[in-house]
Design a protein around this nucleic acid. Structure first.
Lengths: 338, 338
DNA sequence: CCGCTCAAGTTTTACGTATAACGTCCTTCG
DNA sequence: CGAAGGACGTTATACGTAAAACTTGAGCGG
């Protein structure tokens, strides 16, 4: 309850130092070269220190007309991926004197109710990750500079987009599996309407279509271990020849596929190969370690922030997808003889 | 670049509606009963809608003297636990018209450099989770109402604390293992100076000490799967009789213990039992599923927020630890005959 | 010794909002 | 019929900061 005593203002500091409020602002704002003598400046700094002065951000923001704060909208915080995005964005932001406020959309990937109502703080811009562009623009009404992460460059209504080269990741996975000799692939797909998952499906379908002798089936599951377990079990017990490899939309789904395989008495990778996408901590916790596509979440967040800073400064944000990397571990091997 | 045109203010709305700025403030602030006629009010709302008016938060915050925004300081975002804490806190906050800004300390559990510099927004209060109280109070200088989560009630310098009943969780784990017949326990401890881990160590040591015939050894590891793998391997290959059960400080460490056991050719739970703490998604992804202590992260965050709201309103925050629950899965079983 | 420049400040203003204090008119009632 | 009060507003002000515009005095060259 130490907050009954009102906080000191720049005027209090001025009085303590025997100068005007303007002088305090000048000194503390580091704009005093040639305007205030070194001795006076030091006196001001001293007074500020003694009073424990902290500028009122609300007043500063009002005066300046900006807050140097941006909002990062993420679908959820249930994996360390978005934590990495945040970290990367916040780190670069801090170097430019910006803060990042996080809004994890309760609705998950796709919609986003009203991030701005929840952020009680005024914003200079928005980075939205894996969000449906229309949902977001409907909300923010084109008021704020916007950068979209992991979304359809076409559908983002003119906002800058920064993407991971997920298509290439899927390409690498497909090439890896086909190279090992796999022909019957099961796509364990996230049952969530989102561009990021559409890309995976489209790219995988394309690769399979252009490789003679290969076939593709799809199982859809909500993004959870249990959901993937159920969907995979159903798909693997369906009539017809069993797939020899499972391509999962992300690592969590892959973990579910592991459990399904185990319950069906299938050994990984001997009886069936499994791949993931993300390279979460999970990927090396399960046995065998998961062959997956490593996404550099922090770089991703950093590039998003970089783009937003460019927009804020009136520069053109530079595009270019962020490369991803296939990490081959123990969950993939040549298929056993049929 | 649609942000060249400056945003409409309440004055613009007033002009459009043909009323004074004060009337706009009254209507939009829902304080107009008996001050403005329904027709005029509707005209104002209409004008606001057409102009796409959004109040300037900085100005409002300055005027009101508070921001209805609090800061949540967490050690890191590398597991879904703190994501849950955030979610719980933010949900309750939203119901009270508060926003929550997240500051994941780059330093991890323990210190915290300068959350306030990074949060460019003015704050009404702070919730700090798993932080060293002294580090935090040194920074915020007792300026803001503070609630500490998961920290020493004694060492928190008068700030309210909200804790999970982790000691009871450890108690349950110990009782479970001892009940199964285990006598030689290995404590896989997080090598991080923090109250939350001290509690685990202390409680476990107490339980072992008061149970005749039992013995305890400790292995320390950084909180990562690989770190735990190394530390556990060392501990299990040390001379002397091998422990029959491993109590891990959290689930991630347990995952490392799994890998160590596997590499040493030990089967879980037949040759060795393993327990975790947290109940992350990881716990059910690994095989066998992990016996662990479920922490209700969202409730934890909610209770933290509840306490902070109490402090903000001058009420006494109510204490009481949050109960935790042992979840028995496949990673624990009676020890095999010696 | 006059006018100019420069250092070292101060005074003033604006940012956009919420609300206290103040006006009108119109109705109502003693 | 006069005063009181309600309905429906308006005007004025303060929040704390940053910075533009202004003041004062000293130093200095011509």
């Amino acid at each position: 309850m130490a907050h009954g005593s009102t906080r000191p203002t720049s005027r209090d500091v001025a009085q303590a130092a025997g100068v005007s409020q303007a002088a305090v602002s000048l000194v503390l704002g580091d704009k005093w070269r040639g305007r205030v003598s070194e001795t006076t400046a030091e006196r001001v700094r001293q007074a500020a220190r003694e009073l424990g002065y902290r500028p009122n951000l609300a007043a500063r923001n009002l005066r300046l007309g900006h807050t140097r704060t941006v909002l990062l909208v993420v679908p959820a915080l249930t994996t360390e991926f978005f934590a990495g995005v945040y970290t990367g964005a916040a780190r670069l932001a801090a170097r430019h004197g910006f803060g990042v406020v996080l809004y994890p959309s309760p609705e998950g990937i796709g919609p986003a109710r009203d991030p701005f109502a929840s952020a009680q703080t005024a914003l200079d811009g928005v980075i939205a990750s894996s969000m449906a562009a229309d949902a977001l623009t409907a909300i923010h009404g084109d008021q704020l500079p916007l950068v979209m992460l992991d979304s359809d460059p076409q559908g983002s209504l003119g906002a800058a987009t920064v993407n991971l080269d997920i298509a290439d990741g899927v390409r690498q996975v497909a090439a890896h599996l086909i190279g090992l000799g796999h022909r019957r692939i099961l796509h364990l797909a996230a049952d969530v309407p989102s561009w990021t998952f559409d890309v995976r499906a489209r790219e995988l379908a394309t690769r399979i279509a252009e490789t003679p002798g290969t076939s593709l089936r799809t199982a859809r599951a909500p993004i959870s271990i249990d959901g993937a377990l159920t969907a995979t079990t159903t798909a693997l017990t369906a009539p017809g020849p069993r797939p020899t490899a499972i391509v999962s939309d992300d690592d969590k789904l892959a973990a579910g596929a592991y459990k399904a395989a185990r319950r069906l008495g299938l050994r990984i990778p001997d009886d069936i190969s499994v791949t993931g996408l993300d390279d979460l901590a999970l990927a090396t916790a399960i046995d065998p370690e998961l062959t997956t596509v490593r996404l550099d979440a922090e770089l991703f967040g950093e590039r998003g922030m970089q783009a937003l800073l460019a927009v804020l400064e009136g520069r053109e944000p530079q595009g270019g997808d962020i490369p991803v990397e296939l990490v081959v571990r123990g969950s993939t091997a040549p298929p056993s003889a049929p």
